[in-house]
Measured scan of single mutants.
Amino acid sequence: VTLFVALYDYEARTEDDLSFHKGSKFQILNSSEGDWWEARSLTTGETGYIPSNYVAPV
């Protein structure tokens, strides 16, 4: 499992996005959609889309 960590805070703009804070960790579920990845937050357990340029591999 590849884990990613948030580099910045992000406020969701749609109900499909995940809001998160810098330092939040994610499991990436689908990275084939270009700049928006489907991810599960390891902090909240919620699933949604995150901007790929806001995260980096742990």
Rank of each mutant, 00 (worst) to 15 (best):
Y54D: 01
K25E: 10
F4G: 03
L42A: 06
Y49N: 08
S24L: 05
E15K: 13
V55W: 02
P57I: 09
S24T: 15
V5S: 04
F20Y: 01
A56R: 11
T44M: 02
T43R: 08
N53P: 05
A56M: 11
S41Y: 06
T2Q: 13
K25Q: 12
G48S: 02
D9L: 03
P51C: 09
L18F: 11
N30M: 07
E46R: 09
K22A: 12
T44G: 04
S24W: 15
S32W: 10
T2E: 12
S19L: 01
L18W: 05
Y54G: 05
H21S: 14
V5I: 13
G34Y: 09
G45Q: 06
G48C: 04
Y10N: 02
G23T: 02
E46I: 08
V55H: 01
V1Y: 14
E33Y: 12
V1D: 13
G48I: 04
S24C: 13
L7P: 00
Q27I: 15
A6N: 00
V55K: 01
W37N: 01
V55R: 00
N53G: 11
W36A: 05
F26G: 00
Y54A: 12
L18I: 12
G34C: 11
T47M: 09
W36F: 10
Y8P: 00
E46M: 10
T14Q: 11
P57T: 06
E11Y: 10
G45P: 01
I28H: 00
Y10A: 00
W36Q: 06
H21C: 14
T44R: 03
S32V: 10
F26I: 04
L18C: 04
E33L: 14
I28Q: 01
L18Q: 03
T44H: 04
I28G: 00
T14P: 02
T43E: 15
D9R: 04
P57C: 06
T14M: 12
A39N: 01
Q27W: 14
T14C: 14
E38R: 10
W37S: 03
R13H: 10
V1N: 13
R40K: 13
T47V: 15
I28P: 03
Y54C: 10
G34M: 11
S32M: 12
D35P: 10
S41R: 07
Y8F: 11
A39V: 14
T14L: 10
A12V: 02
I28N: 01
L29M: 08
V55M: 09
R40T: 13
L18N: 02
Y8Q: 08
R40Q: 10
E33P: 10
W37H: 03
T44P: 00
G48K: 01
E15S: 13
A56G: 08
A12F: 02
G48N: 01
F26E: 00
G45W: 06
L29S: 05
L3M: 10
T2H: 12
S24Y: 14
V58S: 07
D9A: 07
G23A: 03
V55T: 03
G45C: 08
S24V: 11
F20M: 05
S31T: 13
F4R: 01
P57R: 07
Q27N: 06
L18D: 00
G45Y: 06
I50E: 00
G34V: 12
L29C: 08
D16E: 12
I50G: 00
K25N: 07
I50D: 01
L3S: 06
E33A: 14
D9T: 06
S52A: 13
T2A: 12
R13S: 11
G34E: 13
T14R: 15
N53F: 09
L7A: 02
I28F: 03
